[in-house]
Each structure stands twice: as structure tokens, then as C-alpha cells.
């Protein structure tokens, strides 16, 4: 028997058995839907026995034709992810740095603006986005990338939090004043002093934006655009196996992205603790 800690003896912490019972039961229940998806993707069309056909079928030459919409959706989603990340880097990031250094009083305002998309969810925003996109289409044309303007708003709370955590942990003002007193211009300060220090926060913001954009359904669906999720739903009606396989792949991809974000976060915590 292992030695109990003080906290365990006086009941502030769970014992070993309690802990593992809770974690194993919840873990098993949460594994069921994922395992069911894997099982389904391996089942044969007639429902008897297992086969790898649906997975290997994706590699066959004709699959590109059969699943055209799906591949188009994947392409669109990656394009949207890239443009959204660009918006975060070009529009949000410089503003956050500027406010942090020059307008400390506006910090609360900026925070408030960036949190609004949580209170005004996508399903509400899309009601007002429909007329706005009527104009956007006239100005920029109807290509898919314009949807990234809306996604830039959707990812605002996540990107803000990731970058702000990093801004708070780094002495940005001291660094920029030091650089300025050494004669550096603002572009040089931004590029060679601040960005290297904000790398983790910026990377985390980029990855979480990609994860959110790849999972976005509401706006694309109601504005009649094709992205990964709307294409998945459509594919699910004609070929559920392929739809489930792609859902699994997308899930695995999101897991890797968020795992990287977690690592970025924990490493920067370690550093600041030293």
C-alpha cells in the first residue's frame, strides 16, 4: 500500500481508488463515440465483417472524382485557415502590441471587443453577416477566401487570449524602450525584438485559429459556402464511410494542433517560473 499524503488522509484529495474509478469510467464513456466511428469506418457495406476497403478506396485514382466536393471543401478550409491566420497576424497582433505599449487605457476596451464574439454567437452573427456579404461579394467577388473576414471575428477571443497571455508574461515596454534608446526604429523593434519574444503566443494563436476554422460549420452553411464541415455533412448523405473517415482524420489533425498549443503553453509557463 502506498503512503497517503496529508491531503488524502484528511479527505481534501481523492484516494487512489476513487481517482482511478472516476477517470476510467468517464474516459471509457468518452471513448465510445470515437471507437464507434473507427469501427464504422472499418465495417463493410453489407454490415457483416470488417474491411479496409473504405480507407484504401481513398487512395484509388477515381476517388478524386467521386469525392470532388469533399476535396474542394478541404482545400477551401485550408485556404480560409491561412487567410484567417493572416488577418490575426496583420490586423489583430499589431493592434494588441500598439495598445499594450501606447494605449494602456484602451486595454480593457480591446479585451471587451475581443470577447464579444462569445456573447454574440455565430448563429446570431450570421443573420447580420448575410447583408454585409451582399456588399463584400460586390467589392471582392464571390471567391471563398472572403469568408475569412467573418472567421477572423470568430477566432478573435481565442487568438486574443493566446497573444495576451504572452504579452503579459514578457516585459514588452522595457524591451521596446531599451531598443529605442539604442536607436532602433519601430519596424526593427517589432520584427527583431518583440516578435521573437512573442513567438509562442503568436504560434498558439495561429494554431487555435486553424483548429477553429477547420471546425467551422455555422457561417459557411448559412451563407451557402463550401468548407470542410459542410462538405462532410453532404458527403455523409451519399457515402457515410468516407465522411466518417475524413471526420476521424480532421479530429486527429485538430488533436495534434491542440497538443502543440498545450506544449507551447506549458513550456512558456516553465520558463516564466524560472
Amino acid at each position: 500500500m502506498t503512503k497517503q499524503t496529508v491531503a488524502q488522509r484528511i479527505g481534501a484529495e481523492p484516494g487512489r481508488i476513487t481517482r482511478w474509478v472516476i477517470l476510467v469510467v468517464v474516459g471509457l464513456v468518452f471513448a465510445i463515440p470515437i471507437v464507434s466511428m473507427i469501427e464504422f469506418s472499418l465495417s463493410s457495406n453489407n454490415g457483416h465483417g470488417y474491411t479496409l476497403d473504405h480507407w484504401t478506396g481513398l487512395l484509388s485514382p477515381e476517388s478524386a472524382r467521386t469525392y470532388r466536393t469533399l476535396f474542394q471543401g478541404i482545400g477551401n478550409s485550408f485556404l480560409l485557415a491561412a487567410v484567417t491566420v493572416a488577418i490575426v497576424l496583420v490586423v489583430l497582433l499589431p493592434t494588441m502590441i500598439l495598445v499594450h505599449i501606447q494605449f494602456p487605457r484602451l486595454r480593457r476596451v480591446l479585451e471587451f471587443i475581443c470577447i464579444i464574439p462569445i456573447t454574440v454567437p455565430a448563429i446570431v452573427l450570421v443573420v447580420g453577416l448575410a447583408p454585409v456579404y451582399g456588399i463584400v461579394v460586390r467589392v471582392f467577388g464571390g471567391s471563398i477566401w472572403t469568408l475569412a473576414f467573418a472567421y477572423g471575428i470568430t477566432v478573435l477571443p481565442y487568438a486574443y487570449r493566446a497573444i495576451q497571455a504572452n504579452l503579459d508574461a514578457v516585459p514588452v515596454i522595457t524591451l521596446s524602450e531599451a531598443a529605442r534608446s539604442l536607436g532602433a526604429s519601430w519596424p526593427v523593434i517589432l520584427w527583431r525584438v518583440l516578435l521573437p519574444n512573442l513567438r509562442r503566443g503568436v504560434l498558439a494563436a495561429a494554431f487555435i485559429s486553424v483548429a477553429v476554422v477547420l471546425g467551422e460549420f455555422t457561417i459557411a452553411s448559412l451563407l451557402n459556402r463550401v468548407n470542410l464541415q459542410t462538405a462532410l455533412l453532404q458527403a455523409g448523405q451519399s457515402d457515410p464511410w468516407v465522411a466518417v473517415i475524413f471526420a476521424l482524420l480532421a479530429l486527429a489533425f485538430a488533436f495534434v494542433l491542440l497538443l502543440i498549443i498545450g506544449r507551447l503553453g506549458s513550456v512558456s509557463r516553465n520558463r516564466s517560473a524560472q
Binding site: P33, M37, E39, V212
Partner: peptide
């Protein structure tokens, strides 16, 4: 973050 279409698929499979 796992909402939406993929989650619906998972539960239909389960």
C-alpha cells in the same frame, strides 16, 4: 472544440 458535424457522426455511429 469537437462540436458540429463530426460529433453528430460520432454519435450516429455509436
Amino acid at each position: 472544440q469537437f462540436g458540429g458535424v463530426m460529433l453528430a457522426f460520432a454519435f450516429i455511429a455509436a
